[in-house]
Amino acid sequence: MSAPNPGRQSPDPENQSESQQGTTANEPNKQGGAPSLDHAKEASDEQKSKLSSNPIHPLAEAAAEKTSKK
């Protein structure tokens, strides 16, 4: 069963304008993508190098004072 008011159909490829022909929908793998993994790995390693290996909780000192026997 067809729709009572069908929508517009795309023109044939030879009749399409440049903007219609230039879409990358036909080539989904050539649309570009995420930045190179080498740069991302370097940035991640740089961030990790700035972290301390075992950070002290802000309230750890206060908790130790409260629970210590003086």
Rank of each mutant, 00 (worst) to 15 (best):
M1G: 14
A3H: 14
P4L: 13
P4V: 13
N5R: 14
P6W: 03
P6T: 02
P6L: 04
Q9C: 10
P11K: 00
D12I: 05
D12T: 15
D12P: 11
D12G: 13
D12L: 15
D12C: 07
D12S: 15
P13V: 05
P13C: 09
N15V: 03
N15M: 06
S17Q: 03
E18I: 08
E18W: 14
S19Y: 11
Q20G: 06
G22L: 08
T23E: 05
T24K: 15
T24C: 15
N26W: 12
E27C: 02
K30C: 11
K30E: 12
K30S: 07
G32P: 04
G32I: 08
G32K: 00
A34H: 10
A34F: 07
S36Q: 01
L37C: 02
H39S: 12
K41L: 15
S44V: 07
S44H: 09
D45R: 06
E46F: 05
E46T: 02
Q47S: 08
Q47P: 03
Q47C: 01
Q47D: 08
K48G: 03
K48W: 03
K50N: 06
S53Y: 05
I56W: 00
I56E: 08
L59K: 09
T67M: 05
S68C: 03
S68Q: 04
S68V: 01
K69R: 11
K70Q: 12
K70P: 02
K70F: 00
